[in-house]
Design a protein around this nucleic acid. Structure first.
Lengths: 128, 128
DNA sequence: TTGCATTAGATGAACGTGCATGTATCTTTC
DNA sequence: GAAAGATACATGCACGTTCATCTAATGCAA
């Protein structure tokens, strides 16, 4: 357990996260009116290509349950997703994407990829 | 420029950052009354072992200038650092650590290292 | 010297997040 | 089937961050 490697890894994560997050927030915001978290949620739903429980999203997105609840609320207000009651478990809430949401995601995806490539294109690779 | 690798790297950074940040915030907060940013600033000053300009700190810490200004204000209020006028450039502000600050940092450092080892101990190594 | 652009840092306001908690629903146990 | 506890999601609140702006000091040109 080499402490120096651990600290270096943390420094790298900190720096990469900061750079990428700022760039994403800026580009996605300016060009598509989306925050990074909002895009991430949209992206997860599109990726699964089906309705998802809030809870399922929570496992995949790096947000607290409360933060996720608000992101979904914002997305719903912008008509990019719809919330629906869950038949099986009436405590649950399904989230599904709207046509506008799908379109916005498709439009924003290249921007996100471009930003990530810009930043991680020459990044040190991760070896298992 | 393999897009999949880039996206995977981003996923890893996102996940590692989230886990480590939450853990640091919790542990440093509960055990030493420090936020992650506050520890980071303290750590940078101790590392250089000299007075630093706010501006210099800004280059090393992943915070906006305004956020840094407030962190330093909080640290000063807690008597962990002192702000001082800069002779050469009277717009500038020097920050130096107090004895209490040095002590708090020394006390918190093992906690930080423990958290990082916990999370990055078996992390994929970064290869250049 | 005066005037103007630039830079260092502080601060008000808006916003997003997490924590704690609230409400509703489900599950288990007796 | 009633009571007790767990779970899903929403929400009030405190806090930290960023953005825009402000003040003060500096540098530079005329």
């Amino acid at each position: 357990m080499d402490e120096q490697i651990v600290v270096d890894t943390w420094q790298y994560v900190l720096s990469a996260h900061s750079k990428a997050m700022c760039a994403l927030e800026r580009e996605l915001g300016e060009r598509h009116g989306l925050g990074a978290s909002e895009f991430e949620v949209l992206d997860r739903i599109v990726h699964h290509d089906r309705q998802l429980r809030i809870q399922e999203l929570c496992d995949e997105v790096h947000l607290s349950q409360s933060a996720l609840s608000r992101v979904v609320a914002r997305l719903e207000k912008a008509d990019l997703v719809k919330r629906g009651a869950c038949e099986d478990d009436r405590r649950g809430v399904f989230v599904c994407i709207t046509d506008a949401g799908r379109a916005r995601h498709a439009e924003a995806l290249p921007t996100q990829r471009a930003v990530l490539c810009e930043i991680f294109g020459d990044a040190p690779a991760l070896t298992r």
